[in-house]
Design a protein around this nucleic acid. Structure first.
Length: 442
RNA sequence: GCCGACAUAGCUUAGUUGGUGGAGCGGUGGACUGUUAAUCCACAGGUCGCAGGUUCGAGUCCUGCUGUCGGCGCCA
């Protein structure tokens, strides 16, 4: 039953003039009662197959003529190089229908529904996500996504980072408590994790360099093009590292991702209409660094109403990123704007040693990270000043009591990076089954 | 939590001042030997989201509900 021939390989010229057996799904059909054109799809591409009544016989011809889009079939034929627009065609001599589509329930995703999808996904397509996955646009997105995940893994592994897993059921919050998903846990309450970070810090003295790609969950009622309630979070933690050193890893992994995408997914980026020079700039350029105070000055200079100490929301990020054509870092936020685990700057404890990486083209924040508070005194001071209860974090505080060292890390929103590099209109377009505050199905 | 839209056939939609709901795609039947979203002819397919109200008469006006979408705040 193994599959030996792939449409993508035929387009590479590997089988010119040869007999092949293709397995796939009907993408489009057209023709007359003597000659029928069937565009076959598999995971590697599409190819036009020519079926002549004279070549296959009446029975096969009538069968294939009445087969609907997305029926699965096996066909045998000769690979023919043509000067028609497709370049390659299959002259079919044998056909077998494997999974027929019932005419009472034709494949529901029509051209009109797909055209509509170009400007964002309709309710209908979201309801039929399980079928939408096999369309060319979604397939392309999933291939790009795979390359991005692969690049992140190899980037860290090539630098001797250890992949490490944290629990998804947790007792305490990382960010503010209001965005936790509460789940019943044998008569107690547990929460879905918002981040791998606190548990990674516990392993930091063991592994020193560690990373993960794992789902994080946030019960934000956000309705924007860059939020999901379940998103894929690439996080790293490294011992003996300063904020600047951690930023180098962040810049490194993002640039590696852009570079690898150009190498592995040029065809897919072109299919999406992406400007390859733009991606090359993301791969090759140094990412500028700006302190929070400078950003506030720039915004105030533009007449934006912002007070020192306020976090920079998306509207302000957008104004800042408008002047950049590559991602850029913002560092040294006021400590009052950031959670307790951020380490105050020893040179000026009004600030914390942190960074955000903002993507251009309006995609906004893709990385948040920095140095962590690492002494017991400092973390207790930060927790208390924030008014956070100590109990759920006892294990986290305890790690500071046995050889605390300077360390830090960052979290990268993988789906956001996918959306940005693919040029997607919405983060939903780059994840197979998106979860937001109003949708958990299909 | 807040603000703003939308809901008509399987899909995408038109529907004027309130007066018997149309089309394209998809489906079915037929024609056609090189089509590119093939073309041509015919047919089937509708509780106009749900519940009230106004009216002689509501897809259209009013109220409520439900669902969805877009955006804000928060974040990755």
């Amino acid at each position: 039953m193994a599959k030996n021939y792939w449409i993508g390989d035929i387009h590479k010229g590997n089988f010119d003039g040869q007999e092949v057996e293709l397995k796939g799904w009907i993408y489009r059909t057209r023709g007359s009662n003597k000659i029928h054109f069937l565009v076959l799809r598999d995971s590697t591409g599409v190819i036009q197959c020519v079926i002549k009544r004279d070549s296959v016989g009446d029975e096969s011809f009538d069968l294939i003529k009445s087969s609907l889009i997305e029926s699965s079939i096996i066909l045998k034929g000769l690979v023919e190089v043509t000067d028609r627009e497709h370049g390659y065609e299959i002259q079919v001599n044998n056909i077998e229908i494997i999974g027929a589509v019932n005419p009472d329930r034709p494949f529901p995703i029509t051209e009109s529904a797909m055209l509509e999808a170009e400007g964002g996904e309709s309710e209908f397509l979201l309801d039929n996500r399980h079928l939408y996955l096999r369309t060319s646009r979604m397939t392309t997105m999933l291939k790009i996504r795979s390359t991005i995940f692969g690049t992140i893994h190899s980037y860290f592994r090539n630098q001797d980072f250890i992949e490490y897993q944290a629990p998804n059921f947790v007792a305490g919050a990382v960010e503010g408590g209001s965005t936790l998903f509460e789940v019943p846990y044998f008569g107690k309450k547990a929460y879905l994790t918002q981040s791998w970070q606190l548990y990674a810090e516990a392993a930091m003295p063991a592994l020193e360099r560690l990373y993960t790609i794992a789902p994080s969950f946030r019960a934000e009622k956000s309705r924007t093009r860059r939020h999901l309630t379940e998103f894929w979070h690439a996080e790293m933690e490294v011992a003996w590292a300063s904020n600047e050193e951690i930023m180098k890893y962040g810049e490194g992994v993002v640039r590696a991702t852009a570079k690898n995408l150009l190498e592995e997914r040029e065809v897919e980026l072109n299919d999406l209409g992406r400007d390859l020079e733009l991606i090359a700039r993301y791969a090759d350029s140094k990412y500028p660094i700006m302190r929070y105070d400078e950003a506030v000055e720039i915004l105030q200079g533009k007449g934006i109403d912002i007070d020192w100490g306020q976090d920079l929301d998306y509207s302000k990020e957008k104004i800042l990123t408008a002047d950049f054509d590559v991602p850029h870092f913002l560092t040294h936020y006021p400590r009052i704007a950031k959670p307790f685990y951020h380490r105050p700057d020893p040179e000026d404890p009004k600030y914390v040693l942190c960074h955000d990486l903002l993507a251009p083209e309006g995609y906004g924040e893709i990385i948040g990270g920095g140095e962590r508070t690492w002494s017991e005194e400092e973390i207790l001071e930060r927790i208390d000043e924030e008014g956070t209860p100590r109990e759920p974090y006892e294990f986290y505080i305890d790690t500071r009591r046995y050889g605390g060292v300077p360390h830090g890390g960052f979290g990268l929103g993988v789906d956001r990076v996918c959306a940005w590099l693919a040029g997607a209109d919405h983060i939903r377009e780059v994840i197979p089954f998106p979860r937001d505050s109003r949708r958990v199905t299909p």
